[in-house]
């Protein structure tokens, strides 16, 4: 089963992932999370590290418009993704192994859908 690292955010997307568990909405158990204050503070180097260490995919569960810090969060996070994907391509990795989506604090279903779909994709591409 493909391994996915999720960067979630403390105030917004993390509660959604918790909620998925609470509601017994299952997703692949090879999905791991690291929680940060804001999705626009994720360093591309961390993402690259995850790939190098053997993760098949990285998923950024972004704050989106609910970001408590700045309304520019979505575009900044998208910038990070774009920047990282350039590095990935340079390293010969499939850029689709990095994904992002805004996950609101009660969007558990959306989260499950995203990571399950992602896992399926990664499985297929292996």
């Amino acid at each position: 089963m493909p391994r996915i690292l999720v960067f979630s955010t403390e105030k917004i997307s993390d509660p959604a992932i918790d909620l998925a568990g609470l509601l017994k909405q299952h997703y692949p158990p090879t999905v791991y999370t690291i929680s940060v204050p804001c999705s626009s503070g994720i360093k591309p180097a961390w993402i690259i590290r995850a790939f190098e260490k053997g993760f098949d995919g990285v998923f950024i569960a972004a704050d989106g418009t609910d970001c408590p810090f700045s309304p520019t969060c979505t575009e900044k996070t998208a910038d990070i993704v774009a920047k990282t994907q350039v590095i990935m391509e340079e390293k010969g990795m499939d850029r689709a192994r990095l994904r992002m989506a805004a996950i609101c604090s009660v969007c558990s279903e959306a989260f499950v859908k995203h990571v399950s779909g992602f896992a399926k994709y990664l499985e297929g591409s292996d």
């Binding site: 105030k11 917004i12 509660p15 418009t65 609910d66 609101c104 604090s105 009660v106 969007c107």
Partner: peptide, 12 residues
Amino acid sequence: PTLDCSACITTP
């Protein structure tokens, strides 16, 4: 009018 999710504002 901001369309932010109510829970995201209320729970914190």
